[in-house]
Design a binder for these strands. Sequence first.
DNA 1: GGCTAAGCGAGACGGTACGTCTTGTCTTTAG
DNA 2: CTAAAGACAAGACGTACCGTCTCGCTTAGCC
Lengths: 198, 198, 198, 198
Amino acid sequence: MPAPDPTRRSARARQAILAATRELLSEVGFARLTIEAIAARAGVGKQTIYRWWPSKGAVVFDALLDGNVDPEGNSALPDTGEIERDLRTVLRAIVEELSDPQTDHLQRTITAEIQHDPALADELVVRLLRPQMRATADRLRVAQGAGQIGPDVEVDLGVELLFGPLFHRWLLRTAPLDAAYADRIVSHAMAGLRPRDG
Amino acid sequence: MPAPDPTRRSARARQAILAATRELLSEVGFARLTIEAIAARAGVGKQTIYRWWPSKGAVVFDALLDGNVDPEGNSALPDTGEIERDLRTVLRAIVEELSDPQTDHLQRTITAEIQHDPALADELVVRLLRPQMRATADRLRVAQGAGQIGPDVEVDLGVELLFGPLFHRWLLRTAPLDAAYADRIVSHAMAGLRPRDG
Amino acid sequence: MPAPDPTRRSARARQAILAATRELLSEVGFARLTIEAIAARAGVGKQTIYRWWPSKGAVVFDALLDGNVDPEGNSALPDTGEIERDLRTVLRAIVEELSDPQTDHLQRTITAEIQHDPALADELVVRLLRPQMRATADRLRVAQGAGQIGPDVEVDLGVELLFGPLFHRWLLRTAPLDAAYADRIVSHAMAGLRPRDG
Amino acid sequence: MPAPDPTRRSARARQAILAATRELLSEVGFARLTIEAIAARAGVGKQTIYRWWPSKGAVVFDALLDGNVDPEGNSALPDTGEIERDLRTVLRAIVEELSDPQTDHLQRTITAEIQHDPALADELVVRLLRPQMRATADRLRVAQGAGQIGPDVEVDLGVELLFGPLFHRWLLRTAPLDAAYADRIVSHAMAGLRPRDG
DNA sequence: GGCTAAGCGAGACGGTACGTCTTGTCTTTAG
DNA sequence: CTAAAGACAAGACGTACCGTCTCGCTTAGCC
């Protein structure tokens, strides 16, 4: 198993594979997505896929992140000065995103996949979830400095209090998501985050 | 395609299939679980499986729920009179359960599966999640009656405020679970659920 | 590897495979004949081929022998009473046969194949060569009884004296075959087989 | 496709390739011999092989002939004055050679290969078979001059009468070879070649 | 003695076929 | 007359090689 030389990797092939993967994923879904089909659609030999990715999940993962993650991780939240309004905006945006069948499908695929692939999970956390959560935490800290959040609140946990219910409902499909639900989460979470004598 | 007559279904075959599925699932995992292997292990013809279940996921699902869900749904929460203590107990119990590799594995398998199988999701919600959430909501309502929860709190959302962060962390693998984390969730959630003037 | 049950073998599949093999063999030749193509042409799963034949060579071999070997081995030579004339007829017939590109090709394929597959060689000898050589030996013995062949001649070796030069030239391609060459072989061989004092 | 310049050909690479081919041939046989393996074993790029040889068969052929064919073709037969004894010596030598598994294997490989590669066949005939047969024919002509062979015998055909049975048996595997068989061929062939009145 | 055009080792590439595995259907056989 | 056993058509798996194609790097001649 002589590791391949990354400097000789064909950018053309890589892009074709990721594009084909995205197309096929939305056409047939993850379960019926095959390496053979990706290779055929991309006009690429199967070995070229196996050479650079360890599994179907990894290809899909790269296909999703490729291009649509800003490499600087500059995912700052809006700051209108009013924390509750800004959080509403963020959660509504997530609901909006997940209402798009395409995005819904891709995100579910990845989430399903990481259940049995911890390495993939790590990558997702590092490249996507952590930056997003950190940005939210940063915004909360600003609000805390402005006295809109209690001084004893652990902002990291605050972030989970906001995102948790949303994803719980979405992943376990206990009920549909909508903007009103996003607002209600913010209201209830803020009730616990606000200074005691708000 | 004459639909099979359920009254003639062999209980012996059914149990053998579900047992074999459970065994194989913990031996090789979901991805490498095959219908052929289940049939062979169960001493059953493949057709007998295809006759009664539409997919591998459905068999696994039945295998998991078979027997270990009390048919009465009598999943009442503890009630010591002190809501925060009781919630801590519940969340710690969930953390405990998910710390068992066996349970962790099975639950993840099902969760991954329902991402692309809404019918399965419905069944999971109806048979497992809804009862559990309802029981928690009931306990919250009792606390609300006792003045430990604010009168304007929507208890259903309160339940999600508690479970959400836990499952967010577990399913997206953003950080490991432990009892202390369960306690911190309860603390922060209760800060928002408690009546305003304590 | 539970050996398959020959009693359940599909006659339809077998015939389709052998027919497809014959067709493809004459279309693309042995080297470019693939199991996949045979399966596709025959409308058969690849596994059905692998289940019953150990190698491409074995399939081809069966394809060639299937049907065109009389099961009784009743391959008697002509007997006009004049041995030299009859032998000429036989050798000319062989030359004729090998002049047909189709036959030439098939025979060369098998001959090449048996060079590295002794089991195949055995089968060829038993089912094709031995009967043919025995028939010729029988004819020689009749001639010996009639005094046209020396009483001390080993007829089995006589057969090889006749066939040997022909196949030597054909297999090693030292020179082309024609009817005149067949006649010359018979003449020279007969010079050694005839009774000493004619 | 600018034809490569033979004057710049690397002798080192050529020898390494032929040596690697010989080694691999006796290790895995012709069918499982690959260009990639030859290149790897020889420490050579694949292109260097493709640049100078058109096919695997051609490389193997060169590997076999390289060095072990005397360029002068001085393959004269022994001449004790007694033709039958000398022929016995020659045929026994061939049997001896083919009894060595190594030689047997290499010769069969080439013979199989020429069945579907006429160009290779030509080269084999010109470089190996023709010289050998001509040498034998020359020896027969000498015997003919000495009156040990009939004046009307075509010596070229006589050669085939001797070699034919031997190779027929060897290539078609109708029976094993041994020295006694070589002697019997010579006896019977000589019966036809000797002058009529001994 | 430096330039430049080859041959060279290396190995990624688009492909084809391999032999295996699993799917879901259909057929045969034994209880 | 049911259900196990298992052969079947289909097709994806991951691997092995094919023959072609860049890459830098020697290594010659030719200026």
